[in-house]
């Protein structure tokens, strides 16, 4: 690929699960991939024998660390924020520090990435920001209140961004996979994100589209495809 066509994707949560698969697929498609996660060993496994992947072991909730990453990598054309924390605890048993940590990585991490990359995207008039929320934002799992709240915050933030910066060439997507999904769930949600990004006016919310008949249809959104 010629340098002019070089595209950079920044993927968080890239050490495992859906973030790792997103990073690998983008690397296969010859994107320059910046893989971010706190788990350095997991990042090494994700980027094995992938010369166009670069690893940065840090937490997206850490403002300074993310600023450092963005200062190094230059223009980012796609952000995939799949990092999240979901420690299981009943609401009254969960220390507030743990709730704050969940919000910091999952939601504040999204804010850091957007504030760091969106201005450049708006300037270029193009870009893609994919923020991972969860079906748990709409139907919380037992012992998952903090994660459900953080996922809902990501969803609301994505909706606000899409409204505030509409029509300026940047596509926003809020991916809502099932909570605790398996490898096939990861493949399905990423396929759904790709299909959605291929349609300029695609919906903000992206659902996995596994069940026919719109089981996960939400008020104000179209049925999963």
């Amino acid at each position: 690929m010629s340098p002019a066509l070089k595209r950079t994707a920044l993927v968080t949560g890239a050490a495992s699960g859906v973030g790792a698969l997103a990073a690998r697929r983008l690397a296969a498609a010859a994107w320059d991939v910046v893989a971010v996660d706190v788990d350095a060993d997991g990042l090494a496994a994700t980027t094995l024998r992938s010369p166009n992947s670069h690893v940065r072991a840090c937490d997206p909730g850490d403002a300074e660390a993310i600023q450092g990453v963005l200062a190094d990598v230059g223009p980012v054309h796609r952000v995939v924020h799949a990092a999240s924390l979901a420690p299981a605890a009943r609401a009254l048993d969960q220390p507030v520090e743990e709730v704050e940590a969940v919000l910091r990585t999952t939601f504040v991490g999204a804010v850091h990435l957007v504030q760091g990359t969106l201005p450049g995207m708006l300037e270029r008039g193009s870009g893609e920001i994919v923020l991972f929320s969860s079906l748990a934002a709409f139907a919380p799992e037992p012992r998952g209140s903090a994660f459900a709240a953080a996922a809902a915050a990501v969803g609301a933030y994505a909706a606000a961004l899409a409204a505030e910066y509409a029509g300026q060439g940047v596509r926003f997507r809020c991916a809502c996979p099932p909570f605790g999904g398996d490898a096939d769930d990861h493949r399905l949600i990423l396929d759904a994100v790709d299909r959605s990004l291929a349609r300029p006016e695609g919906d903000l919310h992206v659902f996995p589209g596994r069940t026919p008949g719109g089981r996960w249809r939400l008020p104000g959104t179209s049925a999963p495809r």
Partner: peptide
């Protein structure tokens, strides 16, 4: 073929 996870790295 899209190779996502394998011993030869990710590629098309």
């Amino acid at each position: 073929i899209r190779y996502a996870d394998g011993d030869l790295g990710p590629y098309h």
